[in-house]
């Protein structure tokens, strides 16, 4: 999340809290609709239901703004509300409808990607598909950790679970991603640089 985004959230939230400001609510709605909808859609895979849930999440968020302690976390808080609603919906429905993927802009339309960029883009797409295939509870923690950059304790507080549980969900999510991507164990080593790693030694006999 960039600094501009944070300023927008804090100013807009202040306006909302001070008075029931419809314009401020609309600004937040427009700023956060896409990513909230995307998170819900990834859990439900149903456009209409995702729309209903996203709408409901905004209503609940606006009505419960006083529960939000840090305005800079509005996006993460909203996505927790939305994804929890989506999970509850799934539990009730106990079935998943597969639909077409959402329209999204991918790659470079003018075809000016270098080979390196094209490879990276394909890798990103593979990881993106694997993330979509995660179970909802693992998807939730991956999004909070890697998109919203929340600390483990912050995720735990938002999801009302223990930090140790967040830890194990994250670990399982990464393992699941590696499985989905059919990576070997060595490739699961997470680093910021993603540099080459040595092979893991075989088990001692």
């Amino acid at each position: 999340m960039n600094e501009e985004g944070k300023t927008l959230e804090q100013d807009t939230l202040r306006a909302l809290v001070n008075r029931n400001d419809s314009e401020a609510q609309r600004t937040l709605f427009e700023a956060y609709y896409r990513r909230t909808y995307a998170a819900v859609y990834n859990i439900l895979r149903r456009r209409e239901a995702a729309e209903d849930i996203t709408q409901d999440a905004f209503i609940r968020a606006f009505r419960n703004l006083d529960h939000l302690q840090d305005g800079a976390k509005f996006g993460a808080w909203l996505v927790v509300i939305a994804s929890n609603l989506a999970r509850n919906y799934l539990k009730r429905e106990k079935r998943i409808y597969l639909t077409d993927d959402l329209p999204s802009s991918q790659g470079n339309p003018d075809g000016s990607d270098t080979e390196e960029e094209a490879i990276r883009s394909l890798e990103t797409e593979r990881v993106r598909e694997a993330i979509r295939a995660l179970p909802p509870e693992q998807y939730q923690v991956i999004v909070l950790q890697y998109y919203y950059d929340l600390k483990m304790e912050e995720i735990a507080a938002m999801l009302k679970i223990r930090p140790g549980t967040v830890k194990s969900k994250l670990f399982r999510a990464r393992r699941r991603l590696a499985d989905l991507l059919e990576l070997d164990e060595e490739a699961v080593c997470l680093t910021d640089e993603g540099g080459d790693r040595e092979q893991w030694p075989k088990e001692e006999s």
């Binding site: 990276r120 890798e123 990103t124 593979r126 990881v127 993330i131 991956i142 890697y146 998109y147 990464r174 991603l177 590696a178 991507l181 990576l183 490739a187 699961v188 080593c189 997470l190 680093t191 910021d192 640089e193 993603g194 790693r197």
Partner: peptide, 10 residues
């Protein structure tokens, strides 16, 4: 493919 934190973020 290496599953890096950067790649997940991206």
């Amino acid at each position: 493919l290496k599953l890096t934190e950067d790649l997940i973020r991206e």
